[in-house]
Design a protein around this nucleic acid. Structure first.
Lengths: 216, 216
DNA sequence: TAAGTTTTTTAGACTTGTCTAAAAATACAA
DNA sequence: TTGTATTTTTAGACAAGTCTAAAAAACTTA
Protein backbone atom coordinates (compact mmCIF):
# COMPACT_ATOMS: atom_id res chain seq x y z
CA UNK A 1 0.00 0.00 0.00
CA UNK A 2 2.63 2.55 1.04
CA UNK A 3 6.38 2.38 0.58
CA UNK A 4 8.65 1.81 3.55
CA UNK A 5 9.89 5.39 3.22
CA UNK A 6 6.42 6.85 3.11
CA UNK A 7 5.50 4.91 6.24
CA UNK A 8 8.57 6.19 8.04
CA UNK A 9 7.74 9.77 7.16
CA UNK A 10 4.15 9.40 8.32
CA UNK A 11 5.28 7.90 11.60
CA UNK A 12 7.79 10.69 12.12
CA UNK A 13 5.21 13.38 11.41
CA UNK A 14 2.77 11.69 13.76
CA UNK A 15 5.27 11.50 16.59
CA UNK A 16 6.26 15.13 16.15
CA UNK A 17 2.70 16.40 15.96
CA UNK A 18 1.57 14.71 19.18
CA UNK A 19 3.15 17.47 21.20
CA UNK A 20 3.19 20.42 18.82
CA UNK A 21 0.77 21.54 16.14
CA UNK A 22 2.24 21.85 12.65
CA UNK A 23 5.53 20.06 12.10
CA UNK A 24 8.48 21.73 10.39
CA UNK A 25 10.64 20.36 7.61
CA UNK A 26 13.74 20.60 9.78
CA UNK A 27 12.15 18.68 12.65
CA UNK A 28 11.34 15.81 10.32
CA UNK A 29 14.81 15.91 8.79
CA UNK A 30 16.38 15.73 12.24
CA UNK A 31 14.21 12.81 13.38
CA UNK A 32 14.80 10.79 10.22
CA UNK A 33 18.50 11.72 10.02
CA UNK A 34 18.09 13.06 6.50
CA UNK A 35 18.35 16.44 4.77
CA UNK A 36 15.69 19.14 4.66
CA UNK A 37 15.69 19.05 0.87
CA UNK A 38 14.86 15.35 0.85
CA UNK A 39 12.04 16.02 3.27
CA UNK A 40 10.57 18.72 1.04
CA UNK A 41 10.54 16.31 -1.90
CA UNK A 42 8.76 13.65 0.10
CA UNK A 43 6.27 16.13 1.58
CA UNK A 44 5.13 17.03 -1.90
CA UNK A 45 4.55 13.36 -2.68
CA UNK A 46 2.65 12.73 0.55
CA UNK A 47 0.52 15.80 -0.08
CA UNK A 48 -0.28 14.56 -3.61
CA UNK A 49 -1.51 11.34 -2.02
CA UNK A 50 -3.66 13.29 0.44
CA UNK A 51 -1.82 11.91 3.45
CA UNK A 52 -0.72 15.31 4.76
CA UNK A 53 -1.78 18.94 4.65
CA UNK A 54 1.11 20.88 3.26
CA UNK A 55 1.62 24.49 2.17
CA UNK A 56 5.07 25.66 1.20
CA UNK A 57 6.99 27.16 4.12
CA UNK A 58 4.07 26.47 6.49
CA UNK A 59 4.92 23.05 7.88
CA UNK A 60 2.67 19.99 7.74
CA UNK A 61 -0.02 18.10 9.59
CA UNK A 62 -1.50 14.69 8.91
CA UNK A 63 -4.85 14.30 7.19
CA UNK A 64 -7.31 11.83 8.69
CA UNK A 65 -6.08 9.19 6.28
CA UNK A 66 -2.46 9.96 7.11
CA UNK A 67 -3.14 9.73 10.82
CA UNK A 68 -4.89 6.39 10.39
CA UNK A 69 -1.88 5.01 8.55
CA UNK A 70 0.51 6.37 11.19
CA UNK A 71 -1.47 4.94 14.10
CA UNK A 72 -1.53 1.61 12.34
CA UNK A 73 2.25 1.60 12.02
CA UNK A 74 2.52 2.39 15.71
CA UNK A 75 0.10 -0.42 16.52
CA UNK A 76 2.27 -2.82 14.56
CA UNK A 77 5.47 -1.56 16.14
CA UNK A 78 4.19 -1.88 19.69
CA UNK A 79 2.63 -5.30 19.18
CA UNK A 80 5.87 -6.66 17.77
CA UNK A 81 7.79 -5.14 20.68
CA UNK A 82 5.43 -6.87 23.07
CA UNK A 83 5.88 -10.13 21.20
CA UNK A 84 9.66 -9.89 21.28
CA UNK A 85 9.75 -9.25 25.01
CA UNK A 86 6.93 -11.50 26.21
CA UNK A 87 7.27 -14.43 23.84
CA UNK A 88 10.90 -14.40 22.74
CA UNK A 89 12.33 -13.09 26.03
CA UNK A 90 14.22 -10.13 24.67
CA UNK A 91 14.98 -7.29 27.06
CA UNK A 92 13.19 -3.95 26.70
CA UNK A 93 16.34 -2.26 25.47
CA UNK A 94 16.90 -4.77 22.66
CA UNK A 95 13.66 -4.66 20.72
CA UNK A 96 13.38 -1.24 19.14
CA UNK A 97 15.39 -1.82 15.97
CA UNK A 98 13.82 -5.20 15.27
CA UNK A 99 10.31 -3.79 15.70
CA UNK A 100 11.32 -0.94 13.40
CA UNK A 101 11.70 -3.52 10.63
CA UNK A 102 8.72 -5.65 11.59
CA UNK A 103 6.28 -2.73 11.70
CA UNK A 104 6.37 -2.64 7.90
CA UNK A 105 4.94 -6.14 7.45
CA UNK A 106 1.72 -5.18 5.75
CA UNK A 107 -0.93 -7.81 6.56
CA UNK A 108 -3.71 -6.49 8.79
CA UNK A 109 -5.00 -9.99 9.39
CA UNK A 110 -1.56 -11.01 10.65
CA UNK A 111 -1.34 -8.17 13.13
CA UNK A 112 -4.87 -8.73 14.39
CA UNK A 113 -4.13 -12.39 15.00
CA UNK A 114 -0.88 -11.54 16.70
CA UNK A 115 -2.82 -9.18 18.96
CA UNK A 116 -5.26 -11.95 19.82
CA UNK A 117 -2.45 -14.50 20.30
CA UNK A 118 -0.94 -12.29 22.96
CA UNK A 119 -4.27 -11.56 24.67
CA UNK A 120 -4.80 -8.00 23.42
CA UNK A 121 -2.10 -6.31 25.50
CA UNK A 122 -2.82 -2.71 26.49
CA UNK A 123 0.76 -1.45 26.65
CA UNK A 124 4.10 -2.28 25.06
CA UNK A 125 7.21 -3.08 27.15
CA UNK A 126 8.03 0.63 27.47
CA UNK A 127 4.59 1.47 28.83
CA UNK A 128 3.26 2.99 25.60
CA UNK A 129 -0.39 2.21 24.87
CA UNK A 130 -1.13 -0.15 21.95
CA UNK A 131 -3.88 1.06 19.59
CA UNK A 132 -6.65 -1.51 19.01
CA UNK A 133 -7.58 -2.76 15.55
CA UNK A 134 -9.73 0.33 14.98
CA UNK A 135 -6.88 2.65 15.88
CA UNK A 136 -8.34 3.64 19.26
CA UNK A 137 -6.06 4.10 22.24
CA UNK A 138 -5.62 6.29 25.28
CA UNK A 139 -3.08 9.05 24.87
CA UNK A 140 -0.54 8.59 27.64
CA UNK A 141 -1.60 10.58 30.69
CA UNK A 142 1.75 9.98 32.32
CA UNK A 143 3.92 12.74 33.81
CA UNK A 144 7.70 13.01 33.79
CA UNK A 145 9.23 12.72 37.24
CA UNK A 146 10.59 16.23 36.72
CA UNK A 147 7.04 17.61 36.64
CA UNK A 148 5.69 16.38 39.96
CA UNK A 149 6.04 18.16 43.29
CA UNK A 150 8.35 17.14 46.12
CA UNK A 151 6.87 14.53 48.51
CA UNK A 152 4.52 13.18 45.87
CA UNK A 153 5.16 10.07 43.80
CA UNK A 154 3.64 7.20 41.87
CA UNK A 155 4.31 4.12 39.79
CA UNK A 156 6.93 4.11 37.03
CA UNK A 157 4.84 3.52 33.94
CA UNK A 158 6.71 4.66 30.87
CA UNK A 159 9.70 6.34 29.27
CA UNK A 160 10.09 9.18 26.82
CA UNK A 161 13.51 8.16 25.54
CA UNK A 162 13.57 4.69 23.99
CA UNK A 163 17.33 4.52 23.38
CA UNK A 164 19.00 1.39 24.68
CA UNK A 165 21.51 3.55 26.57
CA UNK A 166 18.72 5.11 28.61
CA UNK A 167 16.83 1.84 29.11
CA UNK A 168 19.97 0.05 30.22
CA UNK A 169 20.69 2.80 32.72
CA UNK A 170 17.20 2.46 34.17
CA UNK A 171 17.55 -1.31 34.33
CA UNK A 172 20.81 -0.96 36.27
CA UNK A 173 19.20 1.45 38.74
CA UNK A 174 16.19 -0.89 38.94
CA UNK A 175 13.99 1.98 37.82
CA UNK A 176 11.74 -0.35 35.86
CA UNK A 177 8.06 -0.27 35.01
CA UNK A 178 5.83 -1.04 38.00
CA UNK A 179 8.20 0.28 40.67
CA UNK A 180 6.81 2.78 43.17
CA UNK A 181 8.82 5.95 43.77
CA UNK A 182 8.51 9.19 45.71
CA UNK A 183 10.27 12.48 45.00
CA UNK A 184 12.17 13.39 48.19
CA UNK A 185 14.00 16.50 47.07
CA UNK A 186 14.95 18.58 44.06
CA UNK A 187 18.49 19.92 44.16
CA UNK A 188 18.13 23.57 43.20
CA UNK A 189 21.67 23.85 41.82
CA UNK A 190 21.20 21.46 38.87
CA UNK A 191 17.58 20.33 39.23
CA UNK A 192 18.69 16.79 39.95
CA UNK A 193 16.01 14.75 41.70
CA UNK A 194 16.37 12.60 44.78
CA UNK A 195 13.98 9.65 44.72
CA UNK A 196 12.95 7.22 47.35
CA UNK A 197 12.30 3.70 46.17
CA UNK A 198 11.59 1.13 48.86
CA UNK A 199 14.01 2.05 51.63
CA UNK A 200 16.71 3.36 49.29
CA UNK A 201 17.41 6.90 48.12
CA UNK A 202 18.45 7.46 44.53
CA UNK A 203 19.87 10.52 42.71
CA UNK A 204 18.82 11.03 39.13
CA UNK A 205 19.73 13.89 36.81
CA UNK A 206 17.28 16.39 35.38
CA UNK A 207 17.62 14.63 32.01
CA UNK A 208 16.65 11.29 33.46
CA UNK A 209 13.79 12.83 35.40
CA UNK A 210 12.47 14.34 32.16
CA UNK A 211 12.43 11.01 30.41
CA UNK A 212 11.00 8.83 33.16
CA UNK A 213 7.20 8.82 33.26
CA UNK A 214 4.98 7.95 36.20
CA UNK A 215 1.31 7.43 36.84
CA UNK A 216 0.17 9.34 39.91
CA UNK B 1 23.52 -6.57 4.99
CA UNK B 2 21.88 -7.30 1.63
CA UNK B 3 19.05 -5.44 -0.06
CA UNK B 4 15.62 -6.98 -0.34
CA UNK B 5 16.13 -7.36 -4.08
CA UNK B 6 19.49 -9.04 -3.70
CA UNK B 7 17.98 -11.48 -1.24
CA UNK B 8 15.17 -12.30 -3.63
CA UNK B 9 17.61 -12.97 -6.46
CA UNK B 10 19.76 -15.23 -4.29
CA UNK B 11 16.72 -17.18 -3.16
CA UNK B 12 15.54 -17.57 -6.76
CA UNK B 13 18.93 -18.78 -7.93
CA UNK B 14 19.10 -21.20 -5.02
CA UNK B 15 15.69 -22.67 -5.77
CA UNK B 16 16.48 -23.06 -9.46
CA UNK B 17 19.87 -24.64 -8.87
CA UNK B 18 18.57 -27.32 -6.52
CA UNK B 19 17.39 -29.36 -9.45
CA UNK B 20 19.62 -28.22 -12.29
CA UNK B 21 23.26 -27.16 -12.42
CA UNK B 22 23.88 -23.66 -13.75
CA UNK B 23 20.89 -21.37 -13.85
CA UNK B 24 19.99 -19.29 -16.89
CA UNK B 25 19.09 -15.63 -17.03
CA UNK B 26 15.69 -16.42 -18.48
CA UNK B 27 14.84 -18.92 -15.75
CA UNK B 28 15.52 -16.28 -13.11
CA UNK B 29 13.55 -13.67 -15.03
CA UNK B 30 10.57 -16.03 -15.24
CA UNK B 31 10.65 -16.92 -11.54
CA UNK B 32 10.94 -13.30 -10.42
CA UNK B 33 8.46 -12.03 -13.03
CA UNK B 34 10.97 -9.55 -14.37
CA UNK B 35 12.88 -9.02 -17.62
CA UNK B 36 16.05 -10.78 -18.69
CA UNK B 37 17.84 -7.45 -19.02
CA UNK B 38 17.09 -6.58 -15.41
CA UNK B 39 18.42 -9.96 -14.38
CA UNK B 40 21.67 -9.43 -16.26
CA UNK B 41 22.18 -6.12 -14.46
CA UNK B 42 21.65 -7.68 -11.09
CA UNK B 43 23.84 -10.68 -11.86
CA UNK B 44 26.76 -8.35 -12.49
CA UNK B 45 26.21 -6.75 -9.08
CA UNK B 46 25.92 -10.08 -7.28
CA UNK B 47 29.07 -11.32 -9.00
CA UNK B 48 30.93 -8.14 -7.91
CA UNK B 49 29.93 -8.97 -4.35
CA UNK B 50 31.19 -12.55 -4.75
CA UNK B 51 27.76 -14.04 -4.12
CA UNK B 52 27.52 -15.83 -7.46
CA UNK B 53 29.81 -17.29 -10.13
CA UNK B 54 28.92 -15.59 -13.37
CA UNK B 55 30.41 -15.60 -16.85
CA UNK B 56 28.58 -13.81 -19.67
CA UNK B 57 26.21 -16.11 -21.55
CA UNK B 58 27.14 -19.06 -19.32
CA UNK B 59 24.52 -18.90 -16.58
CA UNK B 60 25.20 -18.63 -12.85
CA UNK B 61 25.74 -20.67 -9.72
CA UNK B 62 25.93 -19.54 -6.10
CA UNK B 63 29.26 -19.18 -4.33
CA UNK B 64 29.56 -20.65 -0.85
CA UNK B 65 28.74 -17.24 0.60
CA UNK B 66 25.78 -16.86 -1.71
CA UNK B 67 24.43 -20.25 -0.79
CA UNK B 68 24.77 -19.49 2.91
CA UNK B 69 22.75 -16.31 2.46
CA UNK B 70 20.11 -18.15 0.42
CA UNK B 71 19.73 -20.98 2.92
CA UNK B 72 19.36 -18.42 5.66
CA UNK B 73 16.52 -16.70 3.82
CA UNK B 74 14.84 -20.07 3.39
CA UNK B 75 15.30 -20.79 7.08
CA UNK B 76 13.61 -17.51 7.92
CA UNK B 77 10.79 -18.08 5.46
CA UNK B 78 9.98 -21.55 6.72
CA UNK B 79 10.17 -20.63 10.40
CA UNK B 80 7.76 -17.74 9.88
CA UNK B 81 5.41 -20.03 7.94
CA UNK B 82 5.49 -22.45 10.83
CA UNK B 83 4.80 -19.62 13.25
CA UNK B 84 1.86 -18.34 11.24
CA UNK B 85 0.24 -21.76 11.04
CA UNK B 86 1.05 -23.17 14.47
CA UNK B 87 0.79 -20.05 16.61
CA UNK B 88 -1.54 -17.73 14.72
CA UNK B 89 -3.75 -20.46 13.24
CA UNK B 90 -3.47 -19.49 9.61
CA UNK B 91 -4.15 -22.19 7.04
CA UNK B 92 -1.29 -23.58 4.96
CA UNK B 93 -2.54 -21.88 1.83
CA UNK B 94 -2.58 -18.42 3.46
CA UNK B 95 0.94 -17.99 4.72
CA UNK B 96 3.22 -17.80 1.70
CA UNK B 97 2.94 -14.10 0.91
CA UNK B 98 3.23 -13.02 4.53
CA UNK B 99 6.33 -15.16 5.03
CA UNK B 100 7.72 -13.67 1.82
CA UNK B 101 7.76 -10.31 3.58
CA UNK B 102 8.86 -11.60 6.96
CA UNK B 103 11.84 -13.53 5.63
CA UNK B 104 13.64 -10.23 5.10
CA UNK B 105 13.65 -9.26 8.78
CA UNK B 106 17.38 -9.30 9.33
CA UNK B 107 18.09 -10.17 12.96
CA UNK B 108 19.71 -13.60 13.39
CA UNK B 109 19.13 -13.49 17.11
CA UNK B 110 15.43 -12.98 16.47
CA UNK B 111 15.12 -15.94 14.15
CA UNK B 112 17.10 -18.21 16.48
CA UNK B 113 14.84 -17.30 19.38
CA UNK B 114 11.77 -17.82 17.24
CA UNK B 115 13.13 -21.26 16.37
CA UNK B 116 13.58 -22.05 20.06
CA UNK B 117 10.16 -20.61 20.97
CA UNK B 118 8.53 -23.07 18.59
CA UNK B 119 10.61 -26.04 19.76
CA UNK B 120 12.99 -26.27 16.77
CA UNK B 121 10.49 -27.59 14.23
CA UNK B 122 11.96 -29.85 11.54
CA UNK B 123 9.52 -29.03 8.73
CA UNK B 124 7.32 -26.15 7.69
CA UNK B 125 3.56 -26.52 7.10
CA UNK B 126 4.16 -27.67 3.52
CA UNK B 127 6.57 -30.41 4.58
CA UNK B 128 9.73 -28.57 3.57
CA UNK B 129 12.68 -29.08 5.94
CA UNK B 130 13.76 -26.07 8.03
CA UNK B 131 17.54 -25.43 8.05
CA UNK B 132 19.04 -25.18 11.55
CA UNK B 133 20.96 -22.12 12.72
CA UNK B 134 24.09 -23.40 11.01
CA UNK B 135 22.29 -23.86 7.73
CA UNK B 136 22.21 -27.65 7.92
CA UNK B 137 19.15 -29.53 6.75
CA UNK B 138 18.17 -32.70 4.94
CA UNK B 139 17.44 -32.24 1.27
CA UNK B 140 13.93 -33.52 0.73
CA UNK B 141 14.08 -37.21 -0.21
CA UNK B 142 10.41 -37.19 -1.13
CA UNK B 143 9.03 -38.51 -4.40
CA UNK B 144 6.16 -37.17 -6.47
CA UNK B 145 3.18 -39.51 -6.60
CA UNK B 146 3.69 -39.62 -10.36
CA UNK B 147 7.06 -41.33 -9.89
CA UNK B 148 6.07 -44.35 -7.83
CA UNK B 149 4.89 -47.68 -9.19
CA UNK B 150 1.33 -48.97 -9.11
CA UNK B 151 0.38 -50.80 -5.88
CA UNK B 152 3.00 -48.95 -3.83
CA UNK B 153 2.27 -45.94 -1.65
CA UNK B 154 3.30 -43.92 1.38
CA UNK B 155 2.59 -40.90 3.53
CA UNK B 156 1.81 -37.51 2.00
CA UNK B 157 4.75 -35.42 3.19
CA UNK B 158 5.14 -32.38 1.00
CA UNK B 159 4.17 -30.38 -2.07
CA UNK B 160 6.10 -28.99 -4.98
CA UNK B 161 3.63 -26.25 -5.88
CA UNK B 162 2.99 -23.80 -3.04
CA UNK B 163 0.26 -21.80 -4.76
CA UNK B 164 -2.87 -21.33 -2.70
CA UNK B 165 -4.94 -22.70 -5.59
CA UNK B 166 -3.13 -26.03 -5.39
CA UNK B 167 -3.12 -26.16 -1.59
CA UNK B 168 -6.81 -25.38 -1.42
CA UNK B 169 -7.51 -28.14 -3.91
CA UNK B 170 -5.57 -30.63 -1.78
CA UNK B 171 -7.37 -29.45 1.35
CA UNK B 172 -10.73 -30.03 -0.33
CA UNK B 173 -9.71 -33.54 -1.39
CA UNK B 174 -8.34 -34.12 2.12
CA UNK B 175 -4.96 -34.86 0.56
CA UNK B 176 -3.13 -33.26 3.46
CA UNK B 177 0.21 -33.96 5.07
CA UNK B 178 0.29 -37.15 7.12
CA UNK B 179 -2.37 -39.00 5.10
CA UNK B 180 -1.52 -42.50 3.85
CA UNK B 181 -2.17 -43.23 0.18
CA UNK B 182 -1.63 -46.06 -2.30
CA UNK B 183 -1.43 -45.81 -6.08
CA UNK B 184 -4.09 -48.15 -7.46
CA UNK B 185 -3.84 -47.48 -11.15
CA UNK B 186 -2.36 -45.16 -13.75
CA UNK B 187 -4.72 -44.31 -16.60
CA UNK B 188 -2.61 -44.76 -19.71
CA UNK B 189 -4.64 -42.30 -21.79
CA UNK B 190 -3.76 -39.15 -19.80
CA UNK B 191 -1.49 -40.47 -17.05
CA UNK B 192 -4.06 -39.57 -14.42
CA UNK B 193 -3.54 -41.46 -11.16
CA UNK B 194 -6.12 -43.36 -9.12
CA UNK B 195 -5.30 -43.27 -5.42
CA UNK B 196 -6.66 -45.22 -2.54
CA UNK B 197 -6.93 -43.33 0.73
CA UNK B 198 -8.61 -45.17 3.57
CA UNK B 199 -11.51 -46.92 1.90
CA UNK B 200 -12.03 -44.27 -0.76
CA UNK B 201 -10.72 -44.11 -4.31
CA UNK B 202 -9.60 -40.75 -5.69
CA UNK B 203 -8.70 -39.60 -9.21
CA UNK B 204 -5.94 -37.01 -9.52
CA UNK B 205 -4.49 -35.53 -12.69
CA UNK B 206 -0.91 -35.99 -13.84
CA UNK B 207 -0.24 -32.37 -12.82
CA UNK B 208 -1.44 -32.94 -9.29
CA UNK B 209 0.50 -36.21 -9.07
CA UNK B 210 3.65 -34.34 -10.08
CA UNK B 211 3.25 -31.79 -7.33
CA UNK B 212 2.23 -34.05 -4.48
CA UNK B 213 5.20 -35.57 -2.63
CA UNK B 214 5.22 -38.70 -0.51
CA UNK B 215 7.63 -40.46 1.79
CA UNK B 216 7.82 -44.16 1.01
C1' DT C 1 11.46 48.58 8.71
C1' DA C 2 15.80 47.20 7.02
C1' DA C 3 19.54 43.94 7.58
C1' DG C 4 20.99 39.70 8.85
C1' DT C 5 20.01 34.95 10.14
C1' DT C 6 17.57 30.80 9.77
C1' DT C 7 14.48 27.82 7.43
C1' DT C 8 12.66 25.98 3.41
C1' DT C 9 12.53 25.18 -1.33
C1' DT C 10 14.43 24.56 -5.99
C1' DA C 11 17.72 22.89 -9.35
C1' DG C 12 20.51 19.50 -10.84
C1' DA C 13 22.90 15.25 -10.01
C1' DC C 14 23.55 10.38 -8.20
C1' DT C 15 22.11 5.37 -6.92
C1' DT C 16 19.23 1.34 -7.16
C1' DG C 17 16.41 -1.32 -9.66
C1' DT C 18 13.60 -1.44 -13.44
C1' DC C 19 12.22 -1.19 -18.52
C1' DT C 20 12.32 -1.28 -24.03
C1' DA C 21 14.74 -1.78 -28.12
C1' DA C 22 18.59 -3.20 -30.46
C1' DA C 23 22.97 -5.75 -30.82
C1' DA C 24 25.77 -9.77 -29.85
C1' DA C 25 26.46 -14.46 -28.68
C1' DT C 26 24.92 -19.04 -28.64
C1' DA C 27 22.14 -23.03 -30.06
C1' DC C 28 19.88 -25.60 -33.49
C1' DA C 29 18.64 -27.48 -38.01
C1' DA C 30 19.23 -28.57 -42.58
C1' DT D 1 28.73 -25.18 -42.27
C1' DT D 2 25.58 -21.73 -43.06
C1' DG D 3 21.40 -19.61 -41.82
C1' DT D 4 17.73 -18.99 -38.54
C1' DA D 5 15.87 -18.85 -33.97
C1' DT D 6 16.64 -18.16 -29.28
C1' DT D 7 18.97 -16.35 -25.42
C1' DT D 8 21.63 -12.96 -23.34
C1' DT D 9 23.72 -8.64 -23.08
C1' DT D 10 24.22 -3.67 -23.94
C1' DA D 11 22.59 1.01 -24.43
C1' DG D 12 19.77 4.43 -23.02
C1' DA D 13 15.83 5.90 -20.34
C1' DC D 14 12.79 6.21 -16.21
C1' DA D 15 11.00 6.36 -11.11
C1' DA D 16 12.00 6.59 -6.21
C1' DG D 17 14.60 8.50 -2.89
C1' DT D 18 18.60 10.81 -1.69
C1' DC D 19 22.27 14.54 -1.82
C1' DT D 20 24.80 19.37 -2.39
C1' DA D 21 24.65 24.04 -3.52
C1' DA D 22 22.18 27.98 -4.35
C1' DA D 23 17.90 30.77 -4.29
C1' DA D 24 13.74 32.27 -1.99
C1' DA D 25 10.87 33.02 1.90
C1' DA D 26 10.24 33.78 6.63
C1' DC D 27 11.68 35.10 10.92
C1' DT D 28 14.60 38.30 14.30
C1' DT D 29 16.11 42.10 16.23
C1' DA D 30 17.86 46.34 16.49
Amino acid sequence: MYTLTEENYLKAIYKLSVHTGNVSTNQIAALLATKASSVTDMLRKLADKLLINYTRYQGVSLTQTGEKVAVNIIRRHRLWEYFLVEKLNFKWDEVHDMAEEMEHISSTELIDRLDEFMGFPARDPHGDPIPDCNGNFKINDLKPVSAIPVHSGGIISGVRDHSSAFLQYLEKQELTIGKKITVKEIISYDNAVVLQMGNKNLHISRDVANNLLIAL
